[in-house]
Design a protein around this nucleic acid. Structure first.
Length: 607
DNA sequence: GTAGGGTTAG
């Protein structure tokens, strides 16, 4: 007998395991009444169970039970839609809604607001507009939950905030959620000023402020990088008595970190009277961006205080290991990720690809990439960058085409990755083909960085004059992203006049870039212009301008040894000079001739 | 028995 039949009868029947377990589950959640528990009705019981299943992530069980229900009312359908959305399965939520419409059931305000959340999750404006039409048809626009969900959907799916604002203006009795949804709409699209304008309006209209409004307003300050506004809001948070609200405190901590106010962030962190995992993750992520060593230290402190890391923590730690090239540490954390069963997490896998690649282990990057059951644009980009930096241009090209075939639309960053890969592998024609594809087929307008990649592509291959023609043809004034690689090409392929031009353009834009002075003085030296060479070096000394020293590091056992040219490291790491000799031997065999001139000039200057 | 806005990553 099917569960559908079983639920539709009041007679005694052997109960299938799934329903017996489900009834047990409900009975465990409530105080058993006396006389024995009698469910209100099969539909209500099943609906409760479905919600409970979704809450535990048991999506398959929820669907089976729903399919077996004899009668499915609007509440049951809504629970399914909301359940799928709560598990980030927006496509299934939408499919359930379509099924419901096919059965000619009328949606209510709960259904509409739930399915709008699914449209938002899918970022699908056309579906959202369709639901808006249905809401009007059923007289459900005007319900505050529906209007707020409409605003949220339009704010997420539209190019501009116009539609969201139109819905907002049409709400007669706006509540706090209406206001915070509008602020969040601006803020999440990185329009912090827009978000703060709405927040100010909220203050002027004397809308009651709550922790939600403060945390999103603080996020708006963060997005514009204004710690001045952030500090004012921090004071306002205290004035309104929300200084002990943990999400608000976490957003303030995040603001100080992202505005690079680390002494304030640190002080604030130590003064916090309560901390949760998000607090620690915020500080770890904050340090990861500017001081990865410190982020590893905070991580160890977090564990010693008994907090267990999650996907967010591990992602930041992986990024820190990548920046520091701590392969051993990264491998150990990877082991922990596998033991914790977190290796299926998309963002974490993306961070692992990046970590292995930046630590020089491209084979393991490839292994992580190959083992992923789901990949997004970031996964493909990380792998392509890995191939590119390791000189595997053809593999990167192959990967790009495979990605497009899998249905993922490339963005600006992927094009930068593929152009850079072609550039380092000398694949000039391939690179130029991608440049044309980007503009022609994908309608992406090249910006400074993209032009910089194409100039680098041409320049590295010795096509310096073509690179210059490209710069001349740019529709806007080139900046250092373009002149920088061009200068490198002029130096490498001995085009002193164009090199001087590039260096002067960079110095006009960035007068304190020591590397440019060094490069320019070396161009003068190579051209025999010793007077100019000496003048520039004196100028640098007068300005106190010193080129940042190139630093290398090597991980041996549990230690990381860091050194600059001339450091005595031999006593610390036996055999390092032997390895160096081997490397030099390989380089000579490959026909590499070092540019000793530059080295001599740098040493003469003591830099 | 059903629906909302805020904090951490890539």
């Amino acid at each position: 007998m099917s569960t559908r039949k079983l639920l539709s009868t009041t007679h005694f029947h052997p109960i299938p395991l799934i329903v017996r377990n489900s009834i047990q589950l409900v009975q465990n959640c409530t105080t058993p009444p006396n006389p024995p528990f009698i469910p209100k009705g099969p539909s209500v019981l099943a609906t409760t169970l479905i919600k409970s299943y979704f809450g535990k992530g048991l999506i398959g069980e929820a669907r089976t039970l729903f399919d077996e229900m004899p009668e499915r009312d609007v509440v049951a359908w809504t629970v399914m839609i909301a359940g799928y959305t709560s598990c980030n399965n927006h496509t299934h939520a939408w499919m359930v809604f379509c099924e419901m419409m096919n059965e000619e059931l009328d949606p209510n305000a709960f259904t509409i607001s739930s399915v709008l959340k699914a449209c938002k999750g899918m970022k699908c404006l056309s579906y959202g507009r369709l639901v808006h039409g249905l809401a009007i048809k059923h007289g459900l626009d005007g319900f505050i939950y529906v209007d707020n969900a409409l605003m949220d959907m339009y704010a997420t799916c539209c190019v501009s905030m116009d539609d969201a604002c139109m819905v907002f203006r049409g709400i007669h009795l706006k509540n706090e959620v209406s206001w915070t949804t509008l602020i969040a709409g601006y803020t999440h699209r990185d329009d912090g000023y827009g978000g703060l304008r709405v927040f100010r309006q909220m203050l002027l209209e004397e809308v009651e402020l709550n922790p939600f409004s403060f945390s999103i307003a603080v996020r708006a300050c963060t997005s514009i990088g204004s710690h001045t506004f952030g500090e004012q809001l921090h004071a306002a948070v205290t004035k309104h008595g929300f200084e002990s609200n943990l999400p608000v405190m976490n957003s303030i901590l995040d603001m100080y970190c992202r505005c690079s106010c680390f002494s304030e962030a640190n002080r604030y962190f130590y003064e916090m009277n309560q901390r949760d995992l998000i607090t620690w993750n915020t500080l770890i992520a904050g340090y990861e961006r500017s001081n990865p060593t410190e982020s590893l230290y905070v991580f160890s402190m977090m564990e010693s205080e008994g907090f267990s890391p999650n996907c967010f923590t591990f992602t930041s730690i992986m990024a820190a290991c990548a920046t520091l090239a701590f392969l051993n540490c990264g491998q150990q954390i990877h082991g922990r990720i596998i033991r914790r069963g977190l290796d299926g997490n998309l963002a974490l896998s993306n961070a692992l690809i990046d970590m292995y690649s930046k630590c020089g282990n491209i084979a393991d990057s490839h292994q992580v990439f190959g083992g992923m059951s789901r990949r997004d644009l970031v996964s493909w980009t990380a792998m392509m960058i890995g191939y590119g930096t390791h000189g595997y241009g053809e593999e990167a090209v192959e990967l790009f085409d495979k990605m497009v075939r899998s249905g993922i639309r490339p963005d600006r960053v992927v094009f930068m990755a593929i152009l850079s890969a072609c550039s380092h592998a000398g694949l000039v024609d391939e690179g130029l083909r991608y440049f044309k594809l980007m503009v022609g087929d994908y309608n992406i307008s090249p910006d400074q960085e993209i032009y910089g990649c194409v100039v680098d592509l041409l320049g590295r291959a010795g096509k310096v004059e073509e690179a210059y023609e490209l710069i001349e043809s740019m529709p806007f004034k080139p900046d250092e992203c373009v002149w920088g690689p061009f200068l490198g090409a002029c130096k490498a392929h001995t085009f002193p006049n164009l090199g001087k031009l590039a260096a002067h353009r960079i110095l006009d834009l960035r007068p304190h870039m020591a590397g440019t002075y060094v490069m320019l003085s070396n161009i003068y030296a190579a051209d025999g212009k010793w007077g100019e060479f000496a003048r520039l070096r004196k100028l640098m000394k007068r300005m106190g301008n010193k080129k940042e020293t190139g630093r290398s590091w090597v991980e041996v056992g549990n230690h990381v040894y860091s050194f600059v040219v001339g450091d005595e490291v031999g006593s610390k790491i036996e055999g390092i000079y032997q390895v160096l000799e081997n490397l030099i031997g390989h380089m000579k065999e490959s026909g590499y001739v070092p540019d000793l001139d530059c080295l001599i000039y740098d040493l003469e200057d003591g830099t």
